[in-house]
Design a protein around this nucleic acid. Sequence first.
DNA 1: TATGAATTATTCGTGTACGAAACATTTGCA
DNA 2: TGCAAATGTTTCGTACACGAATAATTCATA
Lengths: 164, 164
Amino acid sequence: MNDQYDPISLEQLLCFNVYSLNRALNRFYQAAFGETGMTYPKFVVLSALDEAGPLTVSELSARASMEPSTLSPLLKRMAEYGVLTRIRAPEDERRVVVQLTDMGREAVTLVREAVLEGLKGVDLDPSQTGQIVKELGAARARIEGTKPARQLELGPMPPPLTNC
Amino acid sequence: MNDQYDPISLEQLLCFNVYSLNRALNRFYQAAFGETGMTYPKFVVLSALDEAGPLTVSELSARASMEPSTLSPLLKRMAEYGVLTRIRAPEDERRVVVQLTDMGREAVTLVREAVLEGLKGVDLDPSQTGQIVKELGAARARIEGTKPARQLELGPMPPPLTNC
DNA sequence: TATGAATTATTCGTGTACGAAACATTTGCA
DNA sequence: TGCAAATGTTTCGTACACGAATAATTCATA
């Protein structure tokens, strides 16, 4: 449809390419992780803790670029798995300190290898993606520091509120 | 932790940058979409249909880079909103043809403007991202055509199966 | 022309994802 | 000191996201 004049297509949009590549990567890793229960977000959490040591939930939130409300149930599951511990900080009981267990440190090594090997297999390991990674990081920084200029003007279309 | 020798950090990984930029973009658009009920995946579906005309679920799946099992409930909701219709193809009743309504065509115009304006605000509109978009597209193509070389070897850690 | 295989879509179970609200604790200041 | 505001985390409701199982239809071929 949309006859002559050519609006910008999805495939030309940065957001769509990021969106679809992200899910392609997730599917790829999920295939590699198989039945182990490992997932990409869990790998991110493990990595962040491995790099930075024990962190509170909000520090981890910043590192992993994930909201606390996303982390909370994720961390609970991971603690059940035994890869990390969650302990209220004694000096400020609002905080919860998250820390890898020995099992967690072993896991992160294996998973990191699998992830890097996977990326190498498609020519996307860090030695080949320096420039693009830099640009993506810059884009994220700009977006996170910006509020949308304008609200979408669209008759609200939340579901017809099936008058129950 | 992880003392001297420096393993590759999350921030250097393409996958992490794609992962975190994707969510930053989602949050950004969600802020612009506000209470309208619009979401980024819905925008993708609207756009794909606007570009290609009526499509079956699996054709749309390919265009939008989304699994049929994700599309199915999404399309149901969108049909309730009134932006599209889902009709079994008479000549092959296995297929369901998805088509924009007039309301859907109006919506896609407004949403597309909002999306483009948002991208422009952070210097990410198509005029400035040609190269990076090309590389992301190429990366996706390589990943989608590849199976992971090796399975992750990790003692399965699905939840301890709380013996209920 | 029957009937098993292939194709297409939906349903189901689980796991992110996030804003808003709820909750607990600590801080700041009257 | 005492209590409102601020801070940090969890809970809740909703919306993706996908593989596996299911269901409905069509195809292929014996």
